[in-house]
Lab assay of single mutants.
Amino acid sequence: TETRTFTDEREARRFEQEARDNGKDVQVRESNGKFEVRVK
């Protein structure tokens, strides 16, 4: 599991989409204006 934290939602979404395109299981959590993207 890899976790990346972004402050920019667009960057978080781009990373999320890229991971999904690669067939990964992705979860995005938002807290305090930060976006935590977990990739399995």
Rank of each mutant, 00 (worst) to 15 (best):
N32W: 04
K34G: 08
R4A: 06
V26G: 01
D21L: 13
S31N: 12
D25Y: 11
V37F: 00
Q17A: 09
R14E: 11
R4W: 15
E18D: 09
V37A: 02
T7F: 11
E36S: 04
N22Q: 15
R14N: 08
T3I: 14
R13A: 07
F35M: 02
T1S: 11
E16G: 05
R4E: 04
E11T: 06
V39H: 02
E30H: 10
E18H: 09
A12D: 01
N22M: 14
F6M: 00
Q27Y: 14
R29M: 13
F6P: 01
D25C: 14
F15D: 02
D8Y: 04
V28W: 13
R29K: 11
N22P: 02
S31Y: 15
R13Q: 07
Q17N: 08
S31A: 12
D25W: 14
T5A: 07
F15Y: 12
E2A: 07
G23Y: 06
G33E: 03
R4D: 02
T3Q: 06
S31D: 10
R29W: 14
R10N: 12
A19S: 09
G33W: 00
E11R: 03
S31G: 07
G33N: 05
A12E: 00
K34I: 15
E30A: 09
R20Y: 05
D8T: 10
Q27N: 10
N32Q: 08
E36N: 03
R14G: 05
E11P: 02
V26W: 02
E18M: 10
T3S: 08
D8C: 15
V26P: 05
R10I: 11
G23K: 05
V39W: 06
T5M: 09
R29S: 12
R38E: 14
R10H: 11
E9Y: 09
R29I: 15
V26M: 02
E18P: 00
E2R: 06
D8W: 01
E2V: 13
R4T: 08
V37Q: 01
R38D: 11
Q17R: 11
Q17L: 07
E30W: 13
G33L: 02
E9L: 09
E16H: 02
R13I: 06
E16C: 14
R20F: 04
E36A: 03
E9D: 03
E2Y: 15
T5Y: 15
V26Y: 02
T3D: 05
R10M: 12
V26L: 02
G33P: 01
V37L: 03
T5R: 05
E30Q: 11
K40V: 13
T3P: 04
K34Y: 13
T5W: 15
E18F: 10
S31R: 13
E36T: 09
G23M: 04
R10P: 06
N32V: 04
D8I: 04
